[in-house]
Design a protein around this nucleic acid. Structure first.
Lengths: 189, 189
DNA sequence: TTTAGTTTAGACTATTTGGTCTAGTGGAGG
DNA sequence: CCTCCACTAGACCAAATAGTCTAAACTAAA
């Protein structure tokens, strides 16, 4: 299985943009990171923007999906599935250190670029609706508004991670998120 | 009362950096925004970095403080003070639209610049300890860990705001934050 | 009114930026 | 072996970038 130039580029861009932000990452940094000449880069992508947008779709989207799409197969309580997913986040070192890549890019680019806003929003919506369907399939009391709860879960996890990189650590993340878990448990009938 | 050049600069930088980010804001944009020549700008600040760092200390810090420092004078339950502060956030249009300015700058700059990390962390710590003291002076059950609760509150508010600018609105913010309020209420004895 | 210091003014510079262009190279199919 | 085309290579470019410098215009105090 060969490691294609295109993949090399996308991996490098993902990594650099994740840490330095989109505006903080220059073409030269990317070229240096993956040791390819400029010609190759512009052979695969027509602009920097298209490159980063591709990273959103082909790198960030799957990573986001991976997080909450754990074995739904089992007939398990939706809340428990969610809780396990949220706790699992702590195992991803980079997440605790740098926060959610989607959230970071959202904050940087959405206010100033509609194409980014759309692409990011798309992923966000899918994530939210998947969380929603997990919650629907759970023992949560009937009077709880699940839509806002799904949003609350995302907000809290993103927020906990965004205290990074200076204020957070795995332990701290878990302490913080523990309150979310208690709250979710308290909503069961 | 005159509107000094220095203040004009800081206001412009605050506004531009808030929306476009630090790397997304050029010196020329700043000059144009406040219609001053380059000489003046570099008379007051020796570099762009120093300028933005000054904005953190003289613009963002007071704004953050203003939010949670509401009439503590009254002998009121700390939780109620917090809840009122959190709800009040929704009245600040720009907050709901663009998120918390401290959080945004934190995510962009902290991973790549220690001076920013320190300055931002300083404000964060002060905010957290103020929240903590409000919580200590409240009717929250004794077995609740207040430190992590303070962190949870910040994380949730920041997270709710960071769903912006594409996913949020005042209504949505309140819906989301409503879960936080319920949780806080449930912690009272 | 002179003087000294602060503030304004903007032309100028060196570097970095994203992006183009043309020439070559390598490997798969004929 | 040849041919063709995807890919590599990096020199080159115009624009934007942060920051410098010198001169002038204020302003307040003597």
């Amino acid at each position: 299985m060969k490691y294609s130039t295109r993949d090399k580029i996308l991996d490098a861009v993902y990594k650099l943009v994740y840490i330095n932000g989109c505006n903080g990452t220059s073409i030269d940094m990317i070229l240096k990171e993956c040791s390819i000449p400029k010609g190759s880069l512009y052979h695969y992508f027509k602009s920097k923007k298209e490159m980063v947008l591709t990273v959103v779709k082909e790198r960030i989207a799957p990573k986001m999906h991976e997080f909450y799409d754990l074995e739904k197969v089992k007939k398990e309580d939706g809340v428990d599935i969610m809780v396990r997913a949220i706790l699992k986040v702590s195992q991803k070192e980079e997440l605790v250190k740098f926060g959610c890549p989607l959230n970071r890019l959202n904050q940087e680019m959405s206010p100033v670029d509609d194409d980014f806003a759309k692409a990011i929003n798309f992923i966000y919506d899918r994530m939210k609706s998947d969380i929603l369907s997990a919650l629907k399939d759970s023992s949560i009391k009937a009077d709880v508004d699940l839509d806002s709860l799904a949003q609350f879960i995302i907000a809290t996890v993103w927020g906990s991670l965004s205290l990074s990189p200076r204020h957070s650590s795995i332990k701290r993340y878990l302490n913080t998120i523990n309150h979310l878990v208690s709250y979710l448990e308290s909503l069961k009938y």
